[in-house]
Simulated scan of single mutants.
Amino acid sequence: MLAIRLPQEIENRLKKLADVTGRSKTFYAREAILEHLDDLEDIYLAEHELEEVRAGRSVPVSLEEVMKQYDLES
């Protein structure tokens, strides 16, 4: 279960879309989350890892090293 507060303008747009299409607001909220969750994970996890590298808690590995480690050299 998830409850979210939306700005009134967004709530109005979502309601109008639901009314016009005969689908629920929940349907469209779910679709939006599913559509963008992968991108959000990529962005925030990459930002977190960058902070770890800058703080010296993580060491970057070059693409060349990864390819060699997994025997992916062409």
Results as ranks from 00 to 15, higher is better:
residue 1 M to Q: 14
residue 72 L to M: 11
residue 4 I to L: 06
residue 50 L to R: 13
residue 39 D to M: 08
residue 22 G to V: 00
residue 32 A to M: 05
residue 23 R to S: 14
residue 2 L to P: 05
residue 62 S to R: 10
residue 51 E to A: 12
residue 34 L to Y: 11
residue 57 R to Q: 10
residue 8 Q to R: 12
residue 27 F to A: 07
residue 57 R to V: 00
residue 18 A to Y: 01
residue 33 I to N: 02
residue 67 M to T: 09
residue 55 A to G: 02
residue 8 Q to D: 15
residue 70 Y to Q: 08
residue 25 K to F: 02
residue 62 S to K: 08
residue 18 A to D: 01
residue 13 R to I: 04
residue 23 R to E: 13
residue 15 K to L: 04
residue 7 P to N: 08
residue 29 A to Y: 04
residue 47 E to R: 14
residue 12 N to L: 05
residue 15 K to S: 12
residue 69 Q to H: 14
residue 72 L to T: 05
residue 46 A to L: 05
residue 40 L to I: 10
residue 25 K to L: 03
residue 58 S to Y: 14
residue 42 D to T: 07
residue 10 I to F: 13
residue 67 M to P: 00
residue 61 V to Y: 12
residue 56 G to H: 02
residue 62 S to Y: 03
residue 55 A to Q: 07
residue 4 I to K: 04
residue 38 D to M: 01
residue 67 M to H: 12
residue 27 F to G: 01
residue 53 V to M: 04
residue 44 Y to Q: 06
residue 68 K to P: 00
residue 11 E to H: 15
residue 54 R to Y: 04
residue 29 A to I: 10
residue 28 Y to R: 01
residue 54 R to W: 03
residue 49 E to F: 10
residue 40 L to D: 11
residue 64 E to Y: 08
residue 54 R to A: 03
residue 29 A to E: 05
residue 24 S to I: 00
residue 2 L to E: 13
residue 17 L to V: 06
residue 27 F to H: 14
residue 40 L to F: 13
residue 32 A to S: 08
residue 36 H to L: 05
residue 38 D to E: 11
residue 18 A to E: 00
residue 58 S to Q: 12
residue 39 D to K: 10
residue 42 D to K: 13
residue 22 G to A: 02
residue 54 R to K: 12
residue 34 L to F: 09
residue 62 S to T: 13
residue 31 E to L: 07
residue 35 E to D: 14
residue 15 K to C: 05
residue 12 N to S: 10
residue 59 V to H: 11
residue 46 A to N: 14
residue 8 Q to M: 08
residue 12 N to V: 04
residue 2 L to S: 15
residue 58 S to P: 00
residue 13 R to Q: 14
residue 45 L to Y: 15
residue 73 E to Q: 12
residue 66 V to R: 09
residue 20 V to E: 15
residue 21 T to R: 02
residue 14 L to M: 06
residue 34 L to N: 14
residue 65 E to M: 03
residue 53 V to Q: 06
residue 65 E to K: 09
residue 13 R to C: 05
residue 60 P to W: 09
residue 58 S to K: 15
residue 1 M to P: 07
residue 68 K to D: 08
residue 26 T to W: 05
residue 73 E to C: 07
residue 63 L to K: 15
residue 22 G to K: 00
residue 59 V to T: 15
residue 66 V to G: 04
residue 63 L to P: 02
residue 72 L to H: 06
residue 15 K to I: 02
residue 60 P to I: 06
residue 55 A to F: 01
residue 66 V to K: 08
residue 18 A to W: 01
residue 32 A to I: 02
residue 61 V to H: 12
residue 64 E to N: 07
residue 41 E to N: 12
residue 48 H to T: 09
residue 70 Y to I: 00
residue 40 L to H: 12
residue 62 S to E: 07
residue 37 L to C: 06
residue 10 I to K: 11
residue 6 L to P: 00
residue 63 L to Q: 15
residue 55 A to S: 08
residue 14 L to C: 02
residue 36 H to T: 07
residue 17 L to S: 10
residue 70 Y to S: 03
residue 25 K to E: 08
residue 14 L to I: 07
residue 73 E to S: 11
